[in-house]
Every structure is written in structure tokens, then in C-alpha cells.
Amino acid sequence: MKKVLSGILILMVFIMTACGGTSETSNGPQKGNNGSSNSKDEKYVFKVSHGHPPTSHQHKLLEWYNDEISKRSNGRLSLEIYPSGQLMPSGQELQAMLNGQIDMAIPISSVIGSIDPIWYIFELPYLFEFNNDDPSVFIKHKRAFFDSEKGGGVIKAKTEEHGLKVLSMSQDYYSSFFTADKDKMITDLKSAKGLKIRSTGGTILNDTIEALGASATVVDPSEVVTAIQQGVIDGVTTTAFYALANYPIKTWTSAPMNNYTLTVMMSQKKFQSLPADLQEILIETGEDLDKYLDEISLEAIKEIYDKGAKEKGVEVYLPTKEEHDEFKKVLVPLQAEWAKTVEDGKKLLDEVENTRP
């Protein structure tokens, strides 16, 4: 069990008040859009906001990123991280980056979809290939799509048009259903009917929950535990690592209801103002974060079903093929409906198929 907890802890480590610019040089030498700078010794401190607690893997991944960019830049780059919504609710972070109130954030796909619905592709259920006996199937397929110019490349380019630079597109495993009461375990459509399931927001996730007959309830990340304890919600959709580490849950239904994509994102204006060598460090460190997180995820997933969940007293349910087919019947049509409303949506779904192992 120590090995399992260690693996999960490592994963957690790698998965994230003044206003205005946060660079130590915000009042110093001006830098042009070509990334030039008047000083090789100039230091840049980026103000980062997120709504997750300091113990979360989101916060820990930012600490890892901070350590790496500081080391690789010889101390010229660093992050000033404000967790738990200290500066603002998570829903305000995207606009705050555009306004220059903060420099960086770690929004997930369901939030970024508010500025461009192309991001809602990651909210679609049963999107990527999966196999409970071989977790690498899902990890490899999703990463192949991230790395594809016709997949992740298109999404990043679209986001830059909105003034935001994507430095990392991270994952651990697909999101499943977790409930706080063993009597409310989800095994099929009938058992899901009427349950109040926490949603992070966004049309697709809400539609997914509603299609199963449950009720989607939007709850801020900092309030989820309280909402569970007070019975405001019966369960959540999230990854197993996050649920086991942060929520008082008792059941886990392992089915790909969602493909949360966590990003490290910053203002495009701020990014372009940096010297070229520092821009490269930010990009390369983001890529390395992605690769390393994939490795850590696979290592931990292999044991979390039998040991991690069992030690915490969480009952794991693996739907049968027939039950998956029942879920798919009401959920897979959401993919085509999404594609009709989004520019290049059909092309992105085609790329999901092209990258399928």
C-alpha cells in the first residue's frame, strides 16, 4: 500500500493583492513583441491564480513548473502562486489574464470553453479509447491527439486568437462518477436517475449528466467537500486521483464520462513581451511537464483500482460491456451534436479517429 500511496502522491505533485502586471520589471525596460529585452539579468515573476487547495495536484504541478522554469532560466523566471481562490473565483481567471490582473492560471477545458467552445471536445463522453486492463490505451490516445497538428495544434492556435497562450495540456486519467453513499452507486441508467452530480460548468458536462437522468449541479472547487457533507450533491465527476485525495467519497464507477484537460496558460501579450530564450523555456518546460505526468499517471493507475481505492474503503464498479453500451446509447450522440455547433468540430472528431490506436 505504501507503494501505491507513494505513486499517487507523486502524481499529485505533478498534476497547479496587487493588480496589474506581476513582473518585477513591470516598471522597467520596455520589451517589444519580438521578445527582445534590454537586460539579460532581468527577472520576471508571474502572478498565478487558481481555485484549488494547496494540497491538490493542480497546485503541486504549478510548484513543479515553478521549480523547473526557475532552474532552467537561472532564476530569471518564477511564479507567485495564489491557491484556493485567494485572488478571485476560478471563473474570473481567463478575463483577469486578458486584463493583466494576473499573468497565468490553470483552467480546465470546461472553463476555457466559455471563450471558445472548441475546448468542449474534452467534455465529450466516450471520446478516447480506453481499456480498464490497460490504462496506457487511454493515455496514449489522448496524448496523440494533443500532439497532433490537426488536433491539439488547432485548439492551441484558436486559443491564441483569444489572447491566451497554452503552455501545457495535461491529463491523468478519464473522469468517472464518484458518490458519497454506497447505496447511490451508479451502475446503469436506472441507478443514475435523480442523483445530484457536481459539474464544473460547461454545456457538454451538464448535458452528459442530464442524459443519464441525473441532475447537474455547478459547485466551485473550493466548496465541493462542504457540498458533499451537507448533501447538496450526491457525487462528482472527476479523476480517481483527485477524488481519492480530496473528497469523502464511497463509490467509484469507472467509465469515461469526461476527459478533463488541465492547462498551464498565460496571457499571450505577457508571453510575447518576454525575451525569446525565456519564451522557449516556458514552452519546453510545459512539454516536459506533459510527458512526465503521462509517465507518472500510468505508473499510479496500474495499482489504484485494487489498492488505492480499497484502502480508503471506496467500492469500485467496472461496468459490463452491456452497461457501457447502455451508457453509450444516450451519450455518444452528444459528440455529433457538439460538432454541429463548433467550427472545425467535425474535423477534430475525425482527428480523434485518426489518432485512435
Rank of each mutant, 00 (worst) to 15 (best):
F122A: 02
S222F: 06
K71M: 06
D277L: 12
M1F: 15
R356A: 05
S56N: 05
K340Y: 12
D344T: 05
E303Q: 08
T208P: 04
D172Q: 09
G231N: 03
K158E: 11
S56F: 01
L349P: 04
E161T: 08
N66M: 09
T226I: 14
V342K: 00
I186N: 06
L77Y: 03
F271N: 12
S148G: 04
P135A: 06
F327E: 07
T179I: 02
L77N: 05
A96F: 06
E303S: 12
I155Y: 05
Q268S: 09
K184V: 04
E353H: 09
N131I: 03
D188V: 01
E323H: 11
I139F: 04
T341V: 10
D67M: 15
S23I: 08
D188T: 02
D133T: 02
I204W: 05
F145M: 01
P107K: 07
I301G: 02
A336W: 08
I296T: 13
G202Y: 01
F241A: 08
Q335D: 12
N131G: 04
Y44T: 00
T226F: 10
K71V: 05
N258C: 11
E299G: 00
L77K: 03
A309H: 10
D234M: 10
K156V: 02
S267R: 00
D306A: 11
G202K: 01
S114A: 12
E280D: 13
L11F: 02
I233Y: 01
V232H: 14
K321V: 10
K328S: 06
N131V: 03
Y260N: 09
S191P: 04
W119G: 00
E299Y: 08
Q30L: 15
K71I: 02
K250L: 03
T17V: 11
